[in-house]
């Protein structure tokens, strides 16, 4: 049935097992992996998801890497393909290619403090990393999640955030850019949380994911807090198409982001990110 010829180019068929609305325009799809290959993945990697007849888009894994049978992706309805994906009902078929790309450097984090800095939908690719960090909690020092988003109704994974906030071994801070009452949490951009976090700059590894502008500001704020560029990792946003490094779309300078990223160390892209429209 499966001819090897097209393997990297042809999606595997998967089914939607369940859907969950996270925010007005954001859904998490859990996939039935029966027909898909056993989908082990590293936190930070992505799949190419196909809405059949519409197109294909890169979407990060947002589920637990310790549960390979429960592939989860969190999708925001922005374009035609992502909107079609968010409209899929339980049982609907979709295509999956992957996993692709580099993951968060969790082995490097052993014995260190880890701060996860998420902006908007950027919390989705960080969630698998947090699952793994918590599963191996004793191997790491201080853990914190700093999460900024647009407004209170855009906060994703609310129930889990509450549970995480209740843990004594994890600091969770959430801030929104804009708020009206009755929001009683932080208001201000996510970088203000970095200033308040009192990070131990020699021990801390920072994992950052969000819109590119937010990541640039966050990396600067981390630098101001004393972190070396080598201790900061970003998940880059480019338009990955093929996942194989052959379609050329996702370039940033010399990087083919689908192959060399999406997770890259900050010193590798700092200069490129400073150049307009590169």
């Amino acid at each position: 049935m499966d001819t090897p010829l097209l393997d990297p180019l042809r999606p595997h068929i998967a089914r939607v097992r369940s859907t969950r609305r996270e925010a007005p325009d954001v859904w998490t799809l859990e996939l039935d992996a029966d027909q898909a290959p056993p989908c082990g993945f590293a936190p930070g990697q992505f799949n190419m998801l196909t809405a059949f007849g519409v197109g294909e888009v890169p979407i990060s894994f947002s589920g637990d890497p310790a549960e390979p049978g429960r592939v989860r992706h969190t999708v925001r309805a922005v374009g035609a393909v992502s909107s079609a994906l968010t409209r899929l009902d339980c049982g609907a078929v979709l295509g999956v290619r992957g996993p692709f790309g580099t993951g968060w450097p969790l082995p490097e984090a052993v014995g260190r403090d880890v701060v996860l800095i998420a902006g908007g939908l950027g919390i989705a690719p960080l969630r698998p990393a947090l699952y793994q960090l918590l599963a191996e909690r004793a191997r790491y020092g201080r853990l914190s999640l700093l999460y900024g988003t647009r407004g209170p109704r855009d906060i994703l994974f609310r129930r889990e955030l509450e549970a995480w906030r209740a843990r004594a071994d994890l600091t969770v801070e959430v801030t929104v850019d804009h708020a009206t009452h009755p929001w009683h949490g932080h208001v201000g951009v996510v970088t203000t949380l970095i200033e308040r976090a009192r990070l131990d700059s020699d021990r801390t590894l920072a994992l950052v994911c969000g819109p590119e502008v937010m990541m640039r500001f966050a990396a600067e704020a981390l630098g101001a807090a004393g972190l070396a560029a080598e201790a900061i990792f970003l998940s880059l946003e480019r338009n990955m198409h093929c996942g194989l490094g052959t379609c050329g779309h996702c370039q940033l300078g010399g990087l083919l982001v689908c192959r060399d990223g999406p997770v890259v160390r900050y010193d590798r892209v700092r200069d490129a990110l400073r150049i307009r429209e590169l």
Binding site: G53, G55, E56, H241, C242, T246, C247, G248
Partner: peptide, 16 residues
């Protein structure tokens, strides 16, 4: 070598 892909379907959505 750069390429893009285009997905199409017939009106019934059966042939893709």
């Amino acid at each position: 070598f750069c390429t893009t892909v285009e997905d199409t379907s017939d009106l019934s959505g059966r042939e893709i």
